[in-house]
Amino acid sequence: MPSLVAGGLRDDSVLRLEARHLDEMAAHCLTCYPEEGCGLLVGDPTTGTVTEVHPTENVAHSGQVYSVDPKAYLRVDRAAEDAGRAIIGVFHSHTHTDPWPSPTDVEEAMGPLKDPTWHYVLVSLRHELPSTRSYRIQDGNISEEPVVVLGQ
């Protein structure tokens, strides 16, 4: 059984990625500004390791909400399955607020077909340097998880 540590973090919950993945997410979100940027994370769901970042169109074209292009989801999902990987989460930007899931983010994470093991990565553009955090959203509860940058 996973144990709980201070702050409500599950000690087995972690997002692992490379520095270039952080750069790819931040660059895409800056390109999309003033709209929210979004994209999908492909990798190994058992270890929470990202192997690919796939920026996608925000078909909502809004600075307040995002909606991943469904056609891009289909394409990324097929390619990931063929490669023996999976979509393990989603990233999106908050253009003027902190990197913390919004009530809309939590509501959407509770919908049908939503995988409770997904990693929800937030990129805040509130300050000059983008700030990136990762969360699990399970049963309506938000818990932040550590982001481990591999190779550092």
Partner: peptide, 10 residues
Amino acid sequence: VSILPAVAGG
């Protein structure tokens, strides 16, 4: 036929 979650948020 592919069944997929619609991914969105705020």
